[in-house]
Design a protein around this nucleic acid. Structure first.
Lengths: 351, 351
DNA sequence: CTGAAAGCGCTTACAG
DNA sequence: CTGAAAGCGCTTACAG
């Protein structure tokens, strides 16, 4: 039986700056200065010490440095979106941007459970992270994070931003506007809107974008927005409703509040013998690729640029930590339209 | 203009053990012993010091402790699955289990980019994490992590496990067997299999489970497994193929290699006027809820228990770190069948 | 029972 | 140009 005991992988005591100093025949302080490019010394000495350190595979202990610098170069990411639709792109964007700057991020999965929030928050305090990014799944809900009790800078992503705080959300209205404007530019004039529950802040914003694009094009508002679940089922039912109408009452395009709704809607239209996009163009929201590419035809949809959201949140948090002045308030980062075939564009973007 | 400068959030210098000692009128060493329940002292003194610390909101600096204990109570999670299908449940399971034990986990998003791997690995070394969990998206691919160069214990999750290492994967064969056995128990006798590309290790294992369940039931193998993309499109096309056959050649059940295939297949069957599950029962694999609940009818499917996978990997890594003997090799953790309606069971599980 | 000392691994004024 | 000393915040033998 092959048994891997812990010490099999234990390394022969990490090499420290003391080892390097010893090997180079200098004091620890000189070694430190050589390695950190500080102080004055002959280029040769410096180079010699650096070479030796390199050769010995010396890597400074980040915790020791953190202790003297009062800066850990770590961040905490609190998220209640265990499901993963939003968190993973945000986390990936944040993590890579931070990695490039030498800072690492702790992942804290809180399930909207106050006890877990407390536990994780304490861990982050104890580990002396330099700051916190709090990431949610709804732009209109504030997470149960007791900010006043948190002794460090915080930024919010894809979540409500408490007054005076700093937040990042996708520009839902702008994204919706771009989607509808694109349909207009393609000659559609009867553009309906099928979307999620009114209780979601994003629903109101996307509706506003839709209305603004229509009014800018001097187009009549084609019926009220249809609001329901964020589900394929609701999209499907809405599609059936459209199909049941007399042709003269039917839209020639539908802007959907998310990709699942768009998917269900397209299924219903197709089943009823309508052609997408020829008879009715459809645009979604989310660019959830697994849906967007599986619809027939592939779905034109709004991408919320979540990775970029995570990146920017991190970069701003770093500024905050560095004491740079940062304006309070919520930023709405641009979405971008991902053109595929469901909107009937002549030139689907290549990618 | 409201400007939030960094120092606005900066706290009035963290309180340290020195502050506590001062307030309690004892030495730092005594304070330390009181707070850590070590050494001997009157209960009153101990209690008094603890109360003062509590009142002052003292939280020991984890990095300082790590320095003396040579243990950071942090882990690194390297993943190349930025897409998020597998990583997030694994990460959430790992993170919560670890949080309960006072250890925090760094998220490292590597995009199969060797440069990013190096960068993140160095960061983890520098931060002196106690161990690493390496998580992938295919059980038959080893990640580009240069293990020998890593100076700490490692476990692999949902990825190939190098010889002599320790790994955790779902029991694909067992899961497949359970799915097919369930169909058999429901009286199905002509059970086909539609699955992903042969190049995936999981495909072979799931096929094996299918065959084993059939042979155990003394059922003939109903045609060869149909292998194609992991996509709805392939499922859809496979469904069309089935439908085109004369009724006597049609299966009465299909076990699908993943939920996307199952979804596409059901769509094709339904479109052709067949009833699921009455005419043909369908079972999927993954329990990707967004698909499994959107099919009509909702999909019975195999859940890979990814959260549990992450949890176990973490717990085992902790054992390894503690120097406990751990058997080398790959563990296959049980999957569990999630019964919904597409298999025709009389009693869909409530949940 | 309590405290002074040394140390974890590093950095930074400050003398020489 | 180089090194001794003090310190970051904590813990742990070791004396008293």
């Amino acid at each position: 039986m092959a048994v891997l005991s812990g010490d099999r992988t234990e390394v022969a005591a990490r090499i420290t700056i003391k080892d390097v100093a010893l090997a180079a025949n200098v004091s620890v302080s000189t070694a430190s200065k050589a390695l950190n490019e500080r102080g004055r010394m002959t280029v040769e000495t410096r180079k010699r010490i650096q070479d030796i350190a390199q050769k010995m595979g010396f890597r400074p202990n980040a915790m020791a440095r953190a202790l003297v610098h009062q800066r850990s170069f770590t961040l905490g990411l609190l998220t209640n979106d265990t499901y993963g639709r939003f968190t993973l792109p945000i986390a990936a964007g944040l993590s890579s941007a931070m990695a490039d700057r030498g800072v690492s991020v702790f992942l804290c999965a809180i399930d909207d459970d106050p006890e877990r929030v407390r536990l994780n928050l304490e861990a982050m305090e104890d580990k002396r992270v330099d700051g916190l990014v709090v990431s949610g799944k709804r732009i209109d809900r504030v997470l149960p994070v007791d900010l006043p009790a948190v002794h460090m800078p915080v930024v919010y992503v894809n979540a409500a931003c408490p007054p005076g705080a700093i937040g990042f959300v996708p520009d839902d209205e702008g994204g919706a506007h771009a989607a509808v404007a694109h349909l207009v530019s393609l000659g559609r004039t009867r553009i309906a809107h099928v979307t999620g529950p009114r209780s979601f802040g994003a629903v109101g914003l996307r509706e506003k974008g839709w209305l603004r694009a229509l009014s800018e094009a001097a187009l009549p508002c084609f019926g009220a927005a249809l609001s329901g679940e964020w589900s394929e089922r609701f999209g499907y039912e809405s599609g059936q409703l459209l199909v049941a109408k007399p042709v003269s009452d039917r839209p020639d395009a539908v802007f959907c509040g998310n990709d699942q709704i768009a998917r269900g809607l397209i299924d219903a239209l197709t089943l009823a013998g309508l052609r997408v996009p020829e008879d009715i163009a459809v645009v979604g929201f989310d660019n959830w690729e697994i849906f967007a590419t599986a619809t027939r035809p592939p779905l034109t949809t709004v991408d919320m640029a979540l990775k970029e959201l995570g990146r920017q949140a991190g970069v701003t948090l770093l500024d905050l930590i560095d004491g740079k002045p940062v304006e309070a308030g919520q930023r709405r980062l641009p979405c971008r339209l991902k053109v595929r075939q469901s909107c009937g564009s002549e030139e689907p973007s290549t990618e």
